[in-house]
Simulated assay, not measured.
Amino acid sequence: MKLVLIGAPAAGKGTQAARLVKHYGIAHISTGDMLREEVAKGTELGNQAKSIMASGGLVSDELIIAIVKERIQKDDCKNGFILDGFPRTVVQAEKLDEMVALDKVVYINAPDEVMLARLTARETCPKCGATYNKLFLPAKVAGVCDVCGEALTQRKDDTTQAGLARIKTFHEQSEPLVAFYINKGILFEVDGTKPIDEITKAIVEGLER
């Protein structure tokens, strides 16, 4: 099964992708995580992406397409994968079409004010990558990772200013993907304001229709 998750920042793509990976036994490909890893390593790609990501912008199509093309050829993608954070533009979607035939596209939809509130409440473990949200998925001990005990941090692009910019960028550059995939007959929408378990159930039911 080859899937794409679409949604604005903090719509719940990462949370749902992690659950679907366990359910279906397929690879989770988060382009955001991959880019942040490059930034942390201080690679040439990471240095190019750092300032763009901090301001809420999108890295160039050429860079991200090259990363994804290489990633989906790895062994763990043989049984399928979930793309989380790619494609983000119609141009990227057209390039993805040339690489692979998708089975389904899931659009997790929620109002801007909900996503901004979630986004600014997010926390991440810098050691193991676990994610939390003070509003609906808090750590058992405030500020401490449940998994490894590391102190949690907030991403630099999870501020109100950067969040507003990222949501605006989603509407301008990524929202056209909804119509693109509706026209292909492979997209279905779920309500991103529902509880996490209900969203997972709705996605699985949609995938298995």
Rank of each mutant, 00 (worst) to 15 (best):
K134P: 02
T169D: 07
R155Y: 08
Q161R: 14
L116W: 07
V100S: 06
A151C: 01
I167E: 03
T160L: 14
E172S: 12
D97H: 05
A151P: 06
T153Y: 15
I167A: 00
N183W: 00
Y132C: 01
V178E: 12
D97L: 09
R155D: 03
N183D: 14
G129Y: 08
D157I: 08
V106I: 15
F136D: 15
A139D: 04
L177Y: 10
L164N: 12
D157G: 09
T124K: 09
A162I: 12
R118Q: 07
C128F: 05
V114M: 07
A151H: 14
L164R: 15
E123N: 12
V114K: 04
A139Q: 05
Q154A: 15
K168F: 02
E150G: 10
S174I: 11
N133T: 06
E98V: 05
Y181K: 07
A151N: 15
V141G: 05
N183Q: 15
L187G: 08
E175D: 09
V190D: 02
A117T: 14
A110H: 01
I108Y: 03
A130L: 08
P138T: 08
T153W: 13
V178N: 09
G129M: 06
P195Y: 06
P176A: 06
T131Y: 01
Q154S: 15
T193M: 13
K168Q: 13
R166A: 09
E98Y: 01
E175K: 14
L135V: 10
T193Y: 05
K134R: 15
P138R: 03
V178A: 11
